[in-house]
Design a protein around this nucleic acid. Structure first.
Length: 635
RNA sequence: GCCAGCGUAGCUCAGCUGGUAGAGCUACUGAUUUGUAAUCAGUGGGUCGGGGGUUCGAGUCCCUCCGCUGGCUCCA
């Protein structure tokens, strides 16, 4: 007898080695039809996997959060199967699932999106056939024999241990795979190929370039359609597009990857930095500024010349080598080292909006998200060991305050010591536990990325989440055990001894350019009033009223509102349409009635119009919205 | 840098298998003086990304360079 414990605690008895399918059927036929896999004592297995001993069992239905990944992995197999049918000489490599779908890296002739239709058609045949996925455990020798013509699979198998190797087949297709899979191909209800790219075998440029074909799959056409709508929405919000319509910035061939900001872009830029400066001052930061071009000797001292050279722009001045800074830290070190420091001075929180240049590969440039010149909202905090966790905690709380002002939620990731590192075990221990202690007090869940820290210290990354649920790494807090050493920084402690300070680098916006890009997409160009480059547009109803409208405009400007007036002899409808397209939050129409009554009619971007609002009331409300940094206009 | 796709007026796009470039919006001019998402008419605007080639003839075919987009790699 086998005793199966179900998640609700109930126990079912089976005479001999039941499968997940048997268990499902014993409960209901409907449940069985929706089951894709089964979790046995915490491990997810195929539904037809025999359960040989008493176990805790959880049936995974299509509704389960684990189901989607299992099915997408099966979809990757189906795609590979279809491709092998169409491209006989293709060789498969790896085909994992990713965040919103799957891909398969295949050694084959280059394909383009036009080929998707026929691949998808072939996939549909396989799906319609409802071919069962069959697992076969196989010896290493046999596996190598099976793939003797295939260098990729041979390489993969040779890294596996004998006894752990399994193959999965559907129809005449077989692939090396750990599993699990859905019971049959018919579970792949909605599937679509999304993109192709070249990808190197084992991510190494020296290796062959493979075709990476991406796809996504869902349990229903409805979900697939919703996902496609999401992609559409993201496209509509694309900051490059919105930035052009709103006249915020542009790119020119004369300076690839280096944005030009227009007047309206600068309005937002300055608002972002005004806010930033005010908050930093309140949080006990000083602001500094270091030069753009610094002597090679400094970069040699900091280690950048050795480790970061290929990303640096260099130049010669008076026969000496210089580099345009790719990071602000070495300059910051010089400022700290300027004079003897006392423990009483610490912590020193020195911020710098530093313009850095990095020579990124041409292919990676992407709007404001990936550029070659950008401003970091940097700060270097110098402190004693005892101050580590207070300072880290301070930065976390500070960042939260900043992000929440934009309505951005975020999550944290801690990266620990990598394979290659400098410093002693003890230093790493102190540093890492300092970060962890702060995270614990901060009391927000965080993910640990083992061995993902910088070689010079552990770090905490802050990933914000935008209105579409996409995440972006913005903030980072990096403990640096290298630079204070290299620059021989010190402070005098209370026993008159020289001590090396602990230093962190931290950014909150990250790159101001990129943060602005994220905000554009987050708000879809409809900035909250305090951030809007144009807050109010005045639409005079006819030419006669223009002088009065100008007076109102001057009045608004006196209050520091960002206001424009549309004096064109166009229909009101057209001017309204224009203002809506330009996403100006407050569209104010002025005609004889308004002049008479000292009122305004105010249209907001939702298309609603309020007539007869007293001018004074309007001004007060605008002031309130701006000073409260309201995310939603309260009017 | 690599793979794939793309590059026609300021913007959005049309231009079939090669036969000497087109629309809407914008801009400008005139009329209209407008009450909440495009008033009407007229005018201007392009060495079809650059260069080279094939051809009697190239926006269209080929080569090459540049740029853009999606990925790879890297990262803020």
């Amino acid at each position: 007898m086998i005793n199966i414990t179900l998640p609700d605690g109930s126990i079912k008895e089976f005479p001999n080695s039941p499968t997940g399918a048997d268990i499902a059927k014993s409960i209901s036929e409907g449940l069985f039809r929706n089951c894709v896999a089964v979790e046995i004592d915490g491990e997810i297995k195929d539904l037809n996997c025999k359960i040989e001993k008493d176990a805790r069992v959880r049936l995974i239905t299509t509704k389960d959060k684990d189901a989607l990944g299992i099915m997408r992995h099966s979809a990757a197999h189906v795609m590979a199967h279809a491709i092998l049918c169409l491209y006989k000489q293709a060789k498969l490599t790896i085909g994992p699932i990713i965040e919103d779908g799957f891909y398969y890296d295949i050694d084959m002739e280059p394909v383009s999106q036009e080929d998707f239709l026929k691949i998808e058609a072939e996939m549909q045949k396989i799906i319609k056939a409802k071919l069962p996925f069959a697992r076969k455990e196989i010896g290493k020798k046999e596996a190598l024999e099976f793939y003797k013509e295939d260098p990729y699979k041979t390489e993969l198998i040779s890294e596996l241990e004998d006894g752990t190797i399994s193959f999965y087949s559907q129809g005449d297709f077989t692939d090396l795979c750990r599993g699990p899979h859905v019971p049959h191909t018919g579970f792949i209800e909605a599937v679509q190929l999304t993109k192709v790219s070249g990808a190197y075998w084992r991510a190494d440029q020296k290796n062959d370039q493979l075709q990476r074909i991406y796809g996504t799959a869902f349990f229903s056409q409805k979900e697939l359609k919703a996902y496609m709508r999401f992609l559409e929405e993201a496209k509509k919000r694309n900051h490059r597009k919105v930035g052009a319509v709103l006249d915020l910035f542009s790119f020119h061939d004369e300076a690839r990857g280096m944005p030009f900001f227009h007047a309206k872009g600068m309005e937002i830029w300055n608002t972002l930095l005004d806010f930033w400066r005010k908050e930093h001052k309140k949080a006990g930061y000083i602001e500094t500024k270091t030069p753009l071009i610094l002597n090679r000797k400094l970069w040699e001292k900091s280690g950048h010349w050795e480790n970061y050279r290929e990303n640096m722009y260099t130049t010669k001045i008076d026969e000496e080598d210089y580099a345009i800074k790719p990071m602000n830290c070495p300059g910051g070190m010089l400022l700290y080292g300027l004079k003897p420091r006392s423990y009483k001075d610490l912590p020193i929180r020195a911020a710098e909006i530093g313009l850095v240049h990095r020579h990124e590969l041409s292919g990676v440039l992407s709007g404001l998200f990936r550029v070659r010149a950008f401003h970091q909202d940097d700060a270097h905090i110098f402190m004693t060991e005892a101050q580590i966790h207070d300072e880290i905690l301070g930065v976390l709380r500070f960042a939260e305050k900043i992000y929440s002002t934009f309505g951005l939620d975020f999550h944290l990731e801690l990266s620990t010591r990598p394979e290659q590192f400098i410093g002693t075990d003890e230093q790493w221990e102190t540093a890492t536990s300092g970060l962890e202690a702060a995270l614990k007090i901060y009391n927000k869940e965080y993910k640990i990325n083992e061995k993902d820290g910088a070689f010079y210290g552990p770090k905490i990354d802050m990933h914000i989440e935008d209105a579409l649920g996409r995440t972006w790494q913005c903030g980072t807090i990096q403990l640096d055990m290298s630079l204070p050493e290299r620059f021989d920084l010190s402070y005098i402690d209370n026993r008159n001894e020289k001590v090396r300070p602990i230093m962190i680098h931290r950014v909150i916006y990250g790159s101001v350019e990129r943060f602005l890009g994220i905000l554009i997409e987050h708000f879809a160009g409809r900035f909250p009033l305090w951030l809007s480059p144009v807050q109010i547009i005045i639409l005079p109803i006819n030419d006669e009223i223009i002088p009065y409208a100008e007076k109102v405009k001057a009045e608004f400007e006196n209050k520091n509102f960002k206001v424009e007036i549309d004096k064109r002899t166009e229909s009101l409808n057209k001017k309204v349409r224009n203002a809506q397209i330009n996403k100006i939050p407050l569209i104010v129409t002025i005609g004889a009635k308004e002049k008479e009554a000292d009122t305004l009619s105010v249209r907001t971007l939702d298309g609603k119009v309020k007539y007869g609002i007293a001018k004074k009331e309007f001004i007060d409300k605008v002031i309130d919205n701006i000073s409260d940094k309201n995310l939603k206009l309260i009017f």
